[in-house]
């Protein structure tokens, strides 16, 4: 895997508690990478370690295979959870200030920002003072300030908190757009719906540990544990006989759709899936077989409770 960012065995303690304990992860280039975890799990600390705002006690962070330096950080786009803008400044002026601090020229900054302001339909806030904006409005401004210099690595801490569903959706679209244009995006959240929709990869952090890492697809499949829903014409006894020792029936048949019954089964071994299909096809008039994948929400709760 081509990893843009690697976190290796990072440990960080504050007086009295460990915020991160031997956390490792790899962020593939071009991915939308979700950092999940309950409140206080250590997500923000990890993000601050990656940004060198907090220095890790041990372990290291690699960018493109090399230890991450201070000047690397200047090229990352970072939106902290607690939004910070200069309250007394005008919105446009402030956005230009941050863009120039990230290395854009004044004209370049202004034209790109105007474009973004149009896109997020906030063009008429340009002259307003930050202190007059609502929380959601300020967040849009902050989002634009974070992405305007088109960094190859973007880090958002809880990007969706404080947004209404419409704006949260808008933000999702923009994040996917940034990925399509080549950026790698890391964001922390406990909003599981957004994870399913936009994340390719996740890491689940609980109590300072990385308890689950991988592509969303694989995690859901493996958490699904070879549970399938079959649609067929046999009765329960015939079905059980057809399956033999390959699989067991879970619960009773349910739902009869157009003369077809639906039954949940658990296939014991991965490699038996095709044999099951063959057996059912022969003896039960198999119409469909669908893998049942748990939602990220279920996985999250089960992982945190240790029942995954």
């Amino acid at each position: 895997m081509d990893a843009i960012l690697k976190v290796e065995n990072v440990t960080k303690s504050y007086t009295g508690h460990k915020a991160l304990d031997d956390v490792s992860l790899e962020v593939p280039r071009g991915a939308v990478y979700g950092l999940l975890g309950p409140n206080g799990a250590g997500k923000t600390t990890l993000i601050r370690v990656i940004n060198r705002i907090t220095l890790a006690d041990s372990g290291r962070v690699l960018l493109d295979g090399k230890p991450l330096t201070e000047s690397d950080v200047f090229h990352i786009g970072y939106m902290p959870e607690e939004r910070g803008l200069y309250k007394k400044m005008r919105v446009g002026e402030q956005a230009i200030f941050f863009a120039r601090l990230k290395g854009l020229g004044r004209r370049e900054a202004e034209s790109r920002l105007k474009g973004w302001f149009e896109r997020l339909s906030i063009a008429d806030w340009w002259e307003r003072k930050v202190e007059d904006l609502s929380k959601g409005m300020a967040q849009k401004v902050q989002f634009i300030s974070t992405v305007v210099h088109e960094p190859k690595l973007l880090i958002f801490d809880e990007p969706f908190s404080g947004f209404d569903p419409i704006n949260a959706n808008l933000l999702k679209e923009e994040i996917l757009g940034l990925r399509d244009r080549g950026a790698t995006i890391i964001f922390s959240t406990h909003n599981m719906a957004s994870v399913e929709e936009i994340c390719d990869h996740i890491t689940l952090i609980n109590k300072s540990h990385n308890i689950l890492s991988g592509s969303v697809e694989e995690i859901r499949r493996s958490a699904g544990g070879n549970n399938f829903e079959v649609t067929h014409r046999a009765d329960d006894a015939e079905l059980a006989a057809a399956l033999g020792s390959l699989a067991i029936v879970v619960g009773e048949s349910h739902g009869i759709v157009g003369g077809y019954r639906q039954t949940n089964i658990h296939i014991r071994r991965d490699e038996d899936v095709r044999a099951v299909i063959a057996a059912l096809n022969d003896r039960c008039e198999l119409r469909s077989l669908r893998e049942m994948m748990p939602s990220m929400n279920d996985i999250f709760i089960r992982a945190v409770n240790g029942t995954l």
């Binding site: 705002i53 950080v73 990352i76 970072y78 902290p80 607690e82 939004r83 910070g84 200069y86």
Partner: peptide, 13 residues
């Protein structure tokens, strides 16, 4: 206090 500092120190030393 306003946390602007987080953004600042990831943009300059």
């Amino acid at each position: 206090a306003s946390r602007v500092i987080d953004v600042m120190v990831t943009s300059c030393s």
